[in-house]
Amino acid sequence: MTARLLPFSDDPIRPSSPASVSIQFDGAPIEGVSGQSIAGVILASGPLGFRRTSVSGKSRGVFCGIGVCFDCLVEVNGDRDVRACQRRAVDGDVVVTQHDALPGSIA
């Protein structure tokens, strides 16, 4: 197991029961609860890494969680460079992982 959403029924702070949000992530539907960030929805659905870096192609995901590191960039509804940790998930969002290869022509 990895990241996990605390089920609201077990939560000692007793949040009101959440509505669900569903988004598409790289073509597959995933579910979260309303008010979650896109990063939170992705993390809770399994993957920790959801971006490939440009130089070495390594996997990256959430690092700072507060919009500072830009490691969590994803494409949302066609807009690139969206910080997944800062953008609230909206029903129907189409989220795609980002990988920007370096220009090949220059060594």
Binding site: R80, D81, D100, A101, L102, G104, S105
Partner: peptide
């Protein structure tokens, strides 16, 4: 700009 796919040559 931030890094993007190579589109200006």
């Amino acid at each position: 700009t931030s890094r993007m796919r190579h589109r200006i040559f």
